[in-house]
Simulated scan of single mutants.
Amino acid sequence: MPRRAATQRKGEIAAIVLIEQEPLRAKVAGACKEVMARLDDARVGWHHFERKDKPAFARWRAREFGALLSDAREVEERIRDAQTIVHEVEMEMRRVFQDAHGAYQRVMFRRGNPIAAAEEEVSAQREDGAGRKLSDFEKEALFQEWVKRSLGTNPDKMDDEAYSSSFEAFKTHMFRGPMDEPRPSQSARPSRSTPPRESVSYSEAEEDEETTPVDARVKELYRRLVRRLHPDLRADGTAAVSALWHEVQEAYAASDVARLEILLALSDIEANRLADQTLSQMHLVLVELERALWALDKSLLEAEREEAWDFARTGPNTDLRAQVERQLKRDLTNRQERLDLLTSTIAEWARGPLRKFA
């Protein structure tokens, strides 16, 4: 049997070179602290923009251009109403294969006469034995629409007893007949189309917990981070420590082991415990910090292009006022054009096809 080739020739001496990692760790730690300082400065700028510039700009804009903003809100509400009608007509066209004019008339009749529309729906089902039976959700939707239009009341503001008794009376009047299911008790308010919550026994909860155990490493990392970063245990809690603590909570909730490892290394660097971390872990922390700084710098660059940037310090000026006014008028014009298009579409449906006379 042939002998294996020797990996080391006779007379040669294998040497292991030991590299002192302390200077390398110190260098990476210095880079991490530099990025952390830049990240803190960027966070200060972002918080100033969100908490001071934007609120101050919003107050000034509301004070200076209240009329334009009110007109824009009114047009937006009319757009939503018109879009709702268009959607209902299109759904009606698909449901019964009607033309646009017939579907529009049907929708407007149902909107103006919710009770008559519901009675017609029930009658059609009774005449057609194979008709689709209304679900509880559809019955309750009809009831809520009837309350809004006939009683002028928001059904969500009714107390439980009034809602339950009114709904049962509505069902008794509207859906009585051979197709009805047994009438439920009036003592309990309907669930408003929400399926009943099934009770879970303690043994089932234990079984679920056993089938989805939290990784032991996650618990270990979380306990170590709690001892280092919990606000009750850190009298010198800074903004950076508070931010770390919130990130720990999110990572623990997601059972993100890799993220918790990075946060642990970051807490060690923040506390100058460099000996507890390997060089590779510190490099991962540096990459994570640079990624966070890049994302925040990008957000700040986008914020600088907004009209509210630095408004709390500089305040309004003539150019800004003219720019905001032009933008608001442009937006209002675009909304009005959208509303005109929807209104013309609805008017065309209401008018119906033009008839040709011989």
Rank of each mutant, 00 (worst) to 15 (best):
P155S: 08
D156L: 08
D156E: 09
M158I: 05
M158T: 01
D160K: 11
E161Y: 13
S165L: 10
S166Q: 06
E168R: 10
E168C: 12
K171A: 04
H173T: 11
H173C: 13
G177W: 14
P178W: 14
P178T: 15
M179A: 15
D180Y: 04
E181S: 03
E181C: 15
R183Y: 05
P184A: 11
Q186I: 15
Q186N: 15
S187K: 09
R189S: 13
P190H: 00
S191H: 14
S191D: 15
S191Y: 06
R192D: 03
S193W: 15
T194L: 15
T194R: 09
P195G: 08
P196N: 03
R197C: 13
R197Y: 03
R197V: 13
E198D: 04
E198P: 03
V200S: 06
S201P: 09
Y202P: 12
Y202F: 04
S203C: 09
A205V: 02
A205P: 05
A205N: 05
E206W: 02
E206K: 11
E206G: 00
E206C: 07
E207C: 05
E209T: 03
E209M: 02
T211E: 14
T211Q: 10
T211I: 15
T212E: 14
P213D: 00
D215A: 14
A216P: 11
A216G: 12
R217Q: 14
V218Y: 11
V218L: 04
K219G: 01
K219W: 11
L221I: 03
Y222V: 05
Y222T: 11
Y222K: 01
R224S: 05
V226E: 03
R227I: 04
R227T: 10
L229G: 03
P231H: 01
D232I: 10
L233D: 00
R234H: 08
R234Q: 13
R234E: 12
A235R: 00
A235F: 07
G237N: 09
T238E: 05
T238G: 02
T238F: 10
A239Q: 09
V241L: 09
V241I: 11
S242Q: 05
L244M: 09
W245E: 08
H246C: 07
E247P: 01
E250R: 07
E250W: 05
A251W: 00
A251H: 01
Y252F: 11
A253P: 08
A253M: 01
A254L: 09
S255V: 08
D256I: 12
